[in-house]
Nucleic acid binder design. Structure first.
Lengths: 219, 219
DNA sequence: ACCTGAACACCGTTCAAGT
DNA sequence: ACCTGAACACCGTTCAAGT
Protein backbone atom coordinates (compact mmCIF):
# COMPACT_ATOMS: atom_id res chain seq x y z
CA UNK A 1 0.00 0.00 0.00
CA UNK A 2 2.62 2.53 1.03
CA UNK A 3 5.15 3.60 -1.54
CA UNK A 4 8.14 2.74 0.59
CA UNK A 5 10.35 0.66 -1.66
CA UNK A 6 9.60 3.27 -4.32
CA UNK A 7 10.57 0.76 -6.95
CA UNK A 8 8.89 -2.57 -6.85
CA UNK A 9 10.32 -4.38 -9.79
CA UNK A 10 10.27 -1.63 -12.36
CA UNK A 11 13.54 0.07 -11.49
CA UNK A 12 15.30 -1.72 -14.31
CA UNK A 13 12.82 -0.43 -16.88
CA UNK A 14 12.91 3.05 -15.40
CA UNK A 15 16.69 3.17 -15.56
CA UNK A 16 16.56 2.11 -19.20
CA UNK A 17 13.97 4.75 -20.00
CA UNK A 18 16.10 7.47 -18.46
CA UNK A 19 19.15 6.08 -20.19
CA UNK A 20 17.40 6.24 -23.54
CA UNK A 21 16.56 9.88 -23.00
CA UNK A 22 20.11 10.74 -21.96
CA UNK A 23 21.44 8.78 -24.91
CA UNK A 24 19.36 10.81 -27.32
CA UNK A 25 20.41 14.06 -25.65
CA UNK A 26 24.08 13.60 -24.87
CA UNK A 27 25.18 10.39 -26.53
CA UNK A 28 26.52 7.24 -24.95
CA UNK A 29 29.30 9.12 -23.16
CA UNK A 30 26.67 10.98 -21.18
CA UNK A 31 25.11 7.81 -19.83
CA UNK A 32 26.30 7.31 -16.26
CA UNK A 33 24.99 4.79 -13.77
CA UNK A 34 25.21 7.27 -10.92
CA UNK A 35 23.28 9.88 -12.85
CA UNK A 36 20.58 7.37 -13.77
CA UNK A 37 20.31 6.31 -10.15
CA UNK A 38 19.88 9.95 -9.18
CA UNK A 39 17.14 10.44 -11.78
CA UNK A 40 15.33 7.36 -10.47
CA UNK A 41 15.71 8.52 -6.88
CA UNK A 42 17.70 5.54 -5.71
CA UNK A 43 21.17 5.17 -4.28
CA UNK A 44 24.12 4.99 -6.63
CA UNK A 45 24.61 1.31 -5.89
CA UNK A 46 21.05 0.32 -6.75
CA UNK A 47 21.54 -0.13 -10.51
CA UNK A 48 24.01 -2.86 -9.70
CA UNK A 49 21.06 -5.06 -8.76
CA UNK A 50 19.88 -5.00 -12.37
CA UNK A 51 23.03 -4.46 -14.40
CA UNK A 52 26.36 -6.01 -13.50
CA UNK A 53 28.18 -3.05 -14.97
CA UNK A 54 27.73 -0.05 -17.21
CA UNK A 55 28.29 -2.10 -20.35
CA UNK A 56 25.43 -4.40 -19.38
CA UNK A 57 23.09 -1.43 -19.31
CA UNK A 58 24.34 -0.24 -22.68
CA UNK A 59 23.86 -3.76 -24.03
CA UNK A 60 20.29 -3.75 -22.73
CA UNK A 61 19.72 -0.49 -24.57
CA UNK A 62 21.06 -2.05 -27.74
CA UNK A 63 18.75 -5.05 -27.34
CA UNK A 64 15.78 -2.75 -26.92
CA UNK A 65 16.90 -0.85 -29.99
CA UNK A 66 17.06 -3.95 -32.14
CA UNK A 67 13.62 -5.00 -30.95
CA UNK A 68 12.06 -1.61 -31.52
CA UNK A 69 13.64 -1.26 -34.95
CA UNK A 70 12.43 -4.75 -35.89
CA UNK A 71 8.88 -3.93 -34.83
CA UNK A 72 8.87 -0.75 -36.84
CA UNK A 73 10.19 -2.48 -39.94
CA UNK A 74 7.56 -5.20 -39.65
CA UNK A 75 4.82 -2.60 -39.36
CA UNK A 76 6.07 -0.64 -42.32
CA UNK A 77 6.82 -3.68 -44.44
CA UNK A 78 3.51 -5.46 -43.95
CA UNK A 79 1.92 -6.72 -47.14
CA UNK A 80 -0.98 -4.76 -48.53
CA UNK A 81 -3.54 -7.43 -49.52
CA UNK A 82 -5.41 -4.99 -51.76
CA UNK A 83 -2.55 -4.61 -54.19
CA UNK A 84 -0.74 -6.81 -56.65
CA UNK A 85 2.37 -8.40 -55.25
CA UNK A 86 4.55 -7.03 -58.00
CA UNK A 87 3.37 -3.46 -57.56
CA UNK A 88 3.76 -3.52 -53.82
CA UNK A 89 7.03 -5.38 -53.48
CA UNK A 90 9.52 -2.69 -54.44
CA UNK A 91 7.51 -0.14 -52.51
CA UNK A 92 7.58 -2.32 -49.41
CA UNK A 93 11.33 -2.81 -49.67
CA UNK A 94 11.74 0.91 -50.04
CA UNK A 95 9.48 1.69 -47.09
CA UNK A 96 11.44 -0.71 -44.91
CA UNK A 97 14.72 0.78 -46.02
CA UNK A 98 13.44 4.28 -45.38
CA UNK A 99 12.19 3.35 -41.93
CA UNK A 100 15.60 1.89 -41.13
CA UNK A 101 17.35 5.10 -42.10
CA UNK A 102 14.76 7.23 -40.32
CA UNK A 103 15.40 5.26 -37.17
CA UNK A 104 19.10 5.96 -37.51
CA UNK A 105 18.44 9.66 -37.96
CA UNK A 106 16.20 9.95 -34.93
CA UNK A 107 18.27 7.70 -32.69
CA UNK A 108 21.78 8.03 -33.99
CA UNK A 109 23.44 7.35 -30.66
CA UNK A 110 21.31 4.26 -30.06
CA UNK A 111 22.13 3.01 -33.53
CA UNK A 112 25.80 3.53 -32.81
CA UNK A 113 25.40 1.45 -29.68
CA UNK A 114 23.66 -1.32 -31.62
CA UNK A 115 26.51 -1.47 -34.11
CA UNK A 116 29.36 -0.65 -31.77
CA UNK A 117 32.76 -2.07 -32.61
CA UNK A 118 33.38 -5.10 -30.46
CA UNK A 119 36.91 -5.11 -29.13
CA UNK A 120 36.47 -8.08 -26.86
CA UNK A 121 33.45 -9.86 -25.45
CA UNK A 122 30.13 -9.77 -27.23
CA UNK A 123 26.87 -9.89 -25.36
CA UNK A 124 24.86 -12.97 -26.24
CA UNK A 125 21.61 -11.06 -25.77
CA UNK A 126 22.71 -8.35 -28.18
CA UNK A 127 23.78 -10.91 -30.75
CA UNK A 128 20.43 -12.66 -30.47
CA UNK A 129 18.55 -9.39 -30.90
CA UNK A 130 20.68 -8.45 -33.89
CA UNK A 131 20.12 -11.84 -35.48
CA UNK A 132 16.40 -11.32 -34.95
CA UNK A 133 16.53 -8.07 -36.87
CA UNK A 134 18.28 -9.67 -39.81
CA UNK A 135 15.78 -12.51 -39.72
CA UNK A 136 12.96 -10.03 -40.25
CA UNK A 137 14.61 -8.97 -43.51
CA UNK A 138 14.21 -12.53 -44.72
CA UNK A 139 10.65 -12.75 -43.38
CA UNK A 140 9.69 -9.66 -45.31
CA UNK A 141 11.15 -11.13 -48.46
CA UNK A 142 9.18 -14.34 -48.04
CA UNK A 143 5.99 -12.50 -47.21
CA UNK A 144 6.06 -10.50 -50.38
CA UNK A 145 7.12 -13.15 -52.82
CA UNK A 146 5.21 -16.27 -51.78
CA UNK A 147 4.44 -16.99 -55.43
CA UNK A 148 8.07 -16.76 -56.45
CA UNK A 149 10.25 -18.23 -53.69
CA UNK A 150 13.84 -17.13 -54.00
CA UNK A 151 16.77 -19.41 -54.30
CA UNK A 152 18.17 -19.69 -50.74
CA UNK A 153 21.55 -18.44 -51.85
CA UNK A 154 20.09 -15.42 -53.58
CA UNK A 155 17.82 -14.77 -50.66
CA UNK A 156 20.84 -14.56 -48.40
CA UNK A 157 22.66 -12.35 -50.88
CA UNK A 158 19.69 -10.03 -51.13
CA UNK A 159 19.44 -9.86 -47.36
CA UNK A 160 23.10 -9.02 -46.92
CA UNK A 161 23.13 -6.46 -49.72
CA UNK A 162 20.02 -4.86 -48.30
CA UNK A 163 21.52 -4.80 -44.83
CA UNK A 164 24.74 -3.23 -46.11
CA UNK A 165 22.85 -0.59 -48.07
CA UNK A 166 20.59 0.51 -45.23
CA UNK A 167 23.29 0.26 -42.57
CA UNK A 168 25.77 2.14 -44.76
CA UNK A 169 23.29 4.92 -45.36
CA UNK A 170 22.38 4.94 -41.68
CA UNK A 171 26.04 5.27 -40.74
CA UNK A 172 26.67 8.09 -43.21
CA UNK A 173 23.60 9.98 -42.06
CA UNK A 174 24.15 9.31 -38.37
CA UNK A 175 27.67 10.64 -38.56
CA UNK A 176 26.44 13.66 -40.51
CA UNK A 177 28.60 12.82 -43.50
CA UNK A 178 25.50 13.27 -45.62
CA UNK A 179 22.18 14.96 -44.83
CA UNK A 180 18.96 13.18 -43.94
CA UNK A 181 17.51 14.10 -47.32
CA UNK A 182 20.53 12.74 -49.12
CA UNK A 183 20.22 9.58 -47.08
CA UNK A 184 16.58 9.11 -48.05
CA UNK A 185 17.39 9.57 -51.74
CA UNK A 186 20.41 7.30 -51.45
CA UNK A 187 18.55 4.47 -49.83
CA UNK A 188 15.76 4.75 -52.41
CA UNK A 189 18.34 4.54 -55.15
CA UNK A 190 20.06 1.54 -53.59
CA UNK A 191 16.89 -0.45 -53.01
CA UNK A 192 15.73 0.30 -56.53
CA UNK A 193 18.93 -1.07 -57.98
CA UNK A 194 18.76 -4.11 -55.74
CA UNK A 195 15.19 -4.96 -56.64
CA UNK A 196 15.80 -4.50 -60.35
CA UNK A 197 18.93 -6.61 -60.18
CA UNK A 198 17.29 -9.51 -58.37
CA UNK A 199 13.85 -9.21 -59.97
CA UNK A 200 14.52 -7.95 -63.50
CA UNK A 201 11.03 -8.87 -64.64
CA UNK A 202 9.37 -6.55 -62.13
CA UNK A 203 8.36 -3.07 -63.22
CA UNK A 204 9.17 -3.19 -66.92
CA UNK A 205 10.76 0.26 -67.05
CA UNK A 206 8.28 3.08 -66.28
CA UNK A 207 10.69 5.36 -68.15
CA UNK A 208 12.17 8.23 -66.17
CA UNK A 209 12.83 6.47 -62.92
CA UNK A 210 15.55 4.18 -64.14
CA UNK A 211 19.25 4.60 -63.29
CA UNK A 212 21.48 5.70 -66.14
CA UNK A 213 20.50 2.78 -68.26
CA UNK A 214 18.80 -0.52 -67.65
CA UNK A 215 20.95 -2.81 -65.48
CA UNK A 216 19.98 -5.47 -67.93
CA UNK A 217 19.16 -4.44 -71.46
CA UNK A 218 15.45 -5.11 -71.34
CA UNK A 219 15.24 -4.57 -75.06
CA UNK B 1 72.39 18.70 -24.93
CA UNK B 2 70.73 17.12 -21.96
CA UNK B 3 67.41 15.40 -22.50
CA UNK B 4 65.60 17.50 -19.94
CA UNK B 5 62.42 18.66 -21.66
CA UNK B 6 62.03 15.04 -22.80
CA UNK B 7 59.57 16.19 -25.42
CA UNK B 8 60.59 18.93 -27.76
CA UNK B 9 57.66 19.34 -30.07
CA UNK B 10 56.74 15.74 -30.67
CA UNK B 11 54.60 15.13 -27.60
CA UNK B 12 51.45 15.63 -29.60
CA UNK B 13 52.43 12.95 -32.11
CA UNK B 14 53.56 10.61 -29.36
CA UNK B 15 50.27 10.97 -27.52
CA UNK B 16 48.40 10.18 -30.71
CA UNK B 17 50.56 7.13 -31.37
CA UNK B 18 49.91 5.78 -27.90
CA UNK B 19 46.23 6.58 -28.27
CA UNK B 20 46.05 4.65 -31.51
CA UNK B 21 47.55 1.60 -29.83
CA UNK B 22 45.16 1.82 -26.90
CA UNK B 23 42.27 2.34 -29.27
CA UNK B 24 43.11 -0.85 -31.11
CA UNK B 25 43.51 -2.76 -27.87
CA UNK B 26 40.71 -1.49 -25.67
CA UNK B 27 38.49 0.69 -27.82
CA UNK B 28 37.70 4.36 -27.46
CA UNK B 29 36.51 3.93 -23.88
CA UNK B 30 40.02 2.87 -22.92
CA UNK B 31 41.59 6.05 -24.20
CA UNK B 32 42.32 8.33 -21.24
CA UNK B 33 44.35 11.52 -21.28
CA UNK B 34 45.94 10.72 -17.95
CA UNK B 35 46.96 7.28 -19.10
CA UNK B 36 48.44 8.66 -22.30
CA UNK B 37 50.37 11.24 -20.31
CA UNK B 38 51.72 8.46 -18.11
CA UNK B 39 52.81 6.45 -21.15
CA UNK B 40 54.59 9.48 -22.55
CA UNK B 41 56.23 10.21 -19.21
CA UNK B 42 54.73 13.64 -18.74
CA UNK B 43 52.44 15.11 -16.15
CA UNK B 44 48.71 14.59 -16.45
CA UNK B 45 48.17 18.19 -17.39
CA UNK B 46 50.63 18.16 -20.27
CA UNK B 47 48.25 16.87 -22.97
CA UNK B 48 46.19 19.98 -22.42
CA UNK B 49 48.88 21.93 -24.24
CA UNK B 50 48.07 20.02 -27.42
CA UNK B 51 44.45 19.04 -27.05
CA UNK B 52 41.85 21.28 -25.46
CA UNK B 53 39.95 18.26 -24.21
CA UNK B 54 39.60 14.52 -24.66
CA UNK B 55 37.26 14.92 -27.61
CA UNK B 56 39.87 16.98 -29.42
CA UNK B 57 42.30 14.09 -29.16
CA UNK B 58 39.69 11.64 -30.42
CA UNK B 59 38.94 14.02 -33.28
CA UNK B 60 42.63 14.15 -34.14
CA UNK B 61 42.63 10.34 -34.24
CA UNK B 62 39.66 10.40 -36.60
CA UNK B 63 41.41 12.89 -38.87
CA UNK B 64 44.48 10.65 -38.99
CA UNK B 65 42.22 7.71 -39.75
CA UNK B 66 40.57 9.44 -42.70
CA UNK B 67 43.97 10.43 -44.06
CA UNK B 68 45.45 6.99 -43.67
CA UNK B 69 42.42 5.31 -45.21
CA UNK B 70 42.48 7.75 -48.12
CA UNK B 71 46.15 7.02 -48.77
CA UNK B 72 45.56 3.32 -48.75
CA UNK B 73 42.63 3.56 -51.14
CA UNK B 74 44.64 5.70 -53.53
CA UNK B 75 47.49 3.20 -53.49
CA UNK B 76 45.18 0.29 -54.09
CA UNK B 77 43.04 2.03 -56.67
CA UNK B 78 45.87 3.35 -58.83
CA UNK B 79 45.43 2.74 -62.52
CA UNK B 80 47.44 -0.04 -64.09
CA UNK B 81 48.77 1.47 -67.33
CA UNK B 82 49.54 -1.96 -68.75
CA UNK B 83 45.94 -3.02 -68.92
CA UNK B 84 42.84 -1.98 -70.80
CA UNK B 85 40.66 0.48 -68.93
CA UNK B 86 37.60 -1.73 -69.19
CA UNK B 87 39.33 -4.78 -67.82
CA UNK B 88 40.89 -2.93 -64.93
CA UNK B 89 38.01 -0.70 -63.90
CA UNK B 90 35.79 -3.14 -62.07
CA UNK B 91 38.84 -4.74 -60.50
CA UNK B 92 40.05 -1.38 -59.24
CA UNK B 93 36.66 -0.55 -57.76
CA UNK B 94 36.63 -3.90 -56.09
CA UNK B 95 40.15 -3.52 -54.75
CA UNK B 96 39.30 -0.14 -53.28
CA UNK B 97 36.13 -1.51 -51.71
CA UNK B 98 38.03 -4.44 -50.26
CA UNK B 99 40.72 -2.18 -48.85
CA UNK B 100 38.04 -0.06 -47.21
CA UNK B 101 36.49 -3.08 -45.52
CA UNK B 102 39.90 -4.46 -44.55
CA UNK B 103 40.69 -1.18 -42.87
CA UNK B 104 37.45 -1.43 -40.91
CA UNK B 105 38.31 -4.96 -39.86
CA UNK B 106 41.79 -4.10 -38.66
CA UNK B 107 40.86 -0.80 -37.04
CA UNK B 108 37.26 -1.22 -36.04
CA UNK B 109 37.45 1.16 -33.10
CA UNK B 110 39.14 3.84 -35.19
CA UNK B 111 36.52 3.41 -37.88
CA UNK B 112 33.83 3.82 -35.25
CA UNK B 113 35.47 7.05 -34.16
CA UNK B 114 35.60 8.31 -37.74
CA UNK B 115 31.89 7.67 -38.18
CA UNK B 116 30.75 8.43 -34.65
CA UNK B 117 27.24 9.76 -34.19
CA UNK B 118 27.37 13.50 -33.74
CA UNK B 119 25.04 14.62 -31.00
CA UNK B 120 26.18 18.22 -30.98
CA UNK B 121 29.22 20.00 -32.31
CA UNK B 122 31.15 18.63 -35.25
CA UNK B 123 34.87 19.15 -35.59
CA UNK B 124 35.70 21.15 -38.70
CA UNK B 125 38.96 19.26 -39.11
CA UNK B 126 37.17 15.91 -39.02
CA UNK B 127 34.61 17.09 -41.55
CA UNK B 128 37.36 18.29 -43.85
CA UNK B 129 39.18 14.98 -43.58
CA UNK B 130 35.98 13.04 -44.23
CA UNK B 131 35.18 15.18 -47.25
CA UNK B 132 38.68 14.47 -48.52
CA UNK B 133 38.04 10.74 -48.33
CA UNK B 134 34.83 11.00 -50.32
CA UNK B 135 36.61 13.19 -52.85
CA UNK B 136 39.08 10.39 -53.50
CA UNK B 137 36.16 8.16 -54.51
CA UNK B 138 35.40 10.64 -57.27
CA UNK B 139 39.06 10.97 -58.21
CA UNK B 140 39.35 7.25 -58.64
CA UNK B 141 36.29 7.22 -60.88
CA UNK B 142 37.73 9.96 -63.08
CA UNK B 143 41.14 8.31 -63.22
CA UNK B 144 39.73 5.11 -64.55
CA UNK B 145 37.21 6.43 -67.03
CA UNK B 146 38.93 9.40 -68.71
CA UNK B 147 37.63 8.20 -72.07
CA UNK B 148 34.06 7.99 -70.88
CA UNK B 149 33.37 10.86 -68.46
CA UNK B 150 30.32 10.24 -66.34
CA UNK B 151 27.35 12.48 -66.14
CA UNK B 152 27.91 14.57 -62.97
CA UNK B 153 24.65 13.42 -61.48
CA UNK B 154 25.45 9.77 -62.05
CA UNK B 155 28.97 10.29 -60.77
CA UNK B 156 27.59 11.58 -57.51
CA UNK B 157 25.08 8.75 -57.35
CA UNK B 158 27.80 6.20 -57.95
CA UNK B 159 29.97 7.78 -55.28
CA UNK B 160 27.20 7.76 -52.69
CA UNK B 161 26.10 4.22 -53.50
CA UNK B 162 29.68 3.07 -53.31
CA UNK B 163 30.19 4.85 -50.01
CA UNK B 164 27.02 3.32 -48.57
CA UNK B 165 28.00 -0.15 -49.70
CA UNK B 166 31.52 -0.08 -48.28
CA UNK B 167 30.53 1.75 -45.10
CA UNK B 168 27.59 -0.57 -44.55
CA UNK B 169 29.76 -3.62 -44.95
CA UNK B 170 32.40 -2.04 -42.74
CA UNK B 171 29.83 -1.39 -40.05
CA UNK B 172 28.42 -4.91 -40.19
CA UNK B 173 31.88 -6.45 -40.03
CA UNK B 174 33.21 -4.05 -37.40
CA UNK B 175 30.29 -4.82 -35.13
CA UNK B 176 30.75 -8.53 -35.75
CA UNK B 177 27.28 -8.89 -37.20
CA UNK B 178 28.91 -10.72 -40.10
CA UNK B 179 32.36 -12.28 -40.43
CA UNK B 180 35.30 -10.76 -42.25
CA UNK B 181 34.94 -13.36 -45.00
CA UNK B 182 31.26 -12.60 -45.40
CA UNK B 183 32.15 -8.93 -45.55
CA UNK B 184 34.67 -9.48 -48.34
CA UNK B 185 32.18 -11.50 -50.37
CA UNK B 186 29.43 -8.97 -49.69
CA UNK B 187 31.45 -5.99 -50.80
CA UNK B 188 32.55 -7.83 -53.95
CA UNK B 189 28.94 -8.57 -54.70
CA UNK B 190 27.84 -4.99 -54.11
CA UNK B 191 30.57 -3.42 -56.23
CA UNK B 192 29.87 -5.90 -59.01
CA UNK B 193 26.21 -4.94 -59.08
CA UNK B 194 27.07 -1.26 -58.97
CA UNK B 195 29.53 -1.42 -61.84
CA UNK B 196 27.19 -3.50 -63.98
CA UNK B 197 24.33 -1.12 -63.24
CA UNK B 198 26.22 2.02 -64.16
CA UNK B 199 28.37 0.54 -66.92
CA UNK B 200 26.17 -2.08 -68.55
CA UNK B 201 28.42 -2.23 -71.59
CA UNK B 202 31.42 -3.31 -69.56
CA UNK B 203 32.05 -7.00 -69.31
CA UNK B 204 29.26 -8.22 -71.58
CA UNK B 205 28.05 -10.99 -69.34
CA UNK B 206 30.72 -13.70 -69.11
CA UNK B 207 27.89 -16.10 -68.34
CA UNK B 208 28.00 -17.51 -64.85
CA UNK B 209 29.24 -14.43 -63.08
CA UNK B 210 25.98 -12.51 -63.17
CA UNK B 211 24.19 -11.43 -59.98
CA UNK B 212 21.40 -13.99 -59.56
CA UNK B 213 23.97 -16.74 -59.92
CA UNK B 214 27.23 -17.13 -58.00
CA UNK B 215 28.42 -13.90 -56.39
CA UNK B 216 32.11 -14.60 -56.80
CA UNK B 217 34.25 -17.21 -55.16
CA UNK B 218 34.13 -16.00 -51.59
CA UNK B 219 37.28 -17.87 -50.69
C1' DA C 1 15.78 -10.27 -3.84
C1' DC C 2 16.63 -5.59 -3.72
C1' DC C 3 18.64 -1.51 -2.01
C1' DT C 4 21.91 1.57 1.04
C1' DG C 5 26.13 3.98 1.84
C1' DA C 6 31.02 4.09 2.62
C1' DA C 7 35.34 3.21 0.34
C1' DC C 8 38.66 2.97 -3.40
C1' DA C 9 40.89 3.99 -7.62
C1' DC C 10 40.45 6.40 -11.61
C1' DC C 11 38.82 10.13 -14.56
C1' DG C 12 38.47 15.14 -17.19
C1' DT C 13 39.09 19.76 -16.46
C1' DT C 14 40.77 24.02 -14.43
C1' DC C 15 44.40 26.95 -13.09
C1' DA C 16 48.25 29.23 -10.79
C1' DA C 17 52.92 28.52 -11.14
C1' DG C 18 57.18 27.36 -13.13
C1' DT C 19 60.79 27.15 -17.33
C1' DA D 1 55.17 28.07 -25.79
C1' DC D 2 55.11 24.15 -23.06
C1' DC D 3 54.84 21.65 -18.90
C1' DT D 4 53.99 20.82 -13.60
C1' DG D 5 51.14 19.70 -9.76
C1' DA D 6 47.37 20.67 -6.68
C1' DA D 7 42.42 20.96 -6.55
C1' DC D 8 37.66 19.88 -7.72
C1' DA D 9 33.79 17.31 -9.18
C1' DC D 10 32.49 13.25 -11.13
C1' DC D 11 32.89 8.40 -12.35
C1' DG D 12 32.56 2.76 -12.09
C1' DT D 13 33.03 -0.84 -9.09
C1' DT D 14 33.21 -3.40 -4.78
C1' DC D 15 31.18 -4.81 -0.59
C1' DA D 16 29.37 -5.20 4.08
C1' DA D 17 25.14 -4.11 5.84
C1' DG D 18 20.31 -3.46 6.00
C1' DT D 19 15.07 -4.78 4.71
Amino acid sequence: MVERPFHHGNLRAELLDHAEAVLREDGADGVSLRDLARRAGVSHGAPRSHFVDRQALLDALAVRGFERLGERLREVGAVDPDRAADATFEEAVQRVARAYVDFAVQDAALMELMFAAKTDHASAAVERAAAGLFATFDELLDQHRPDQPMDPHDRQRFGLLFAAAVQGTASLVGSRRISADQGAALVDDATGILVRTFFPTLRPAPAGERPPAAPRSAG
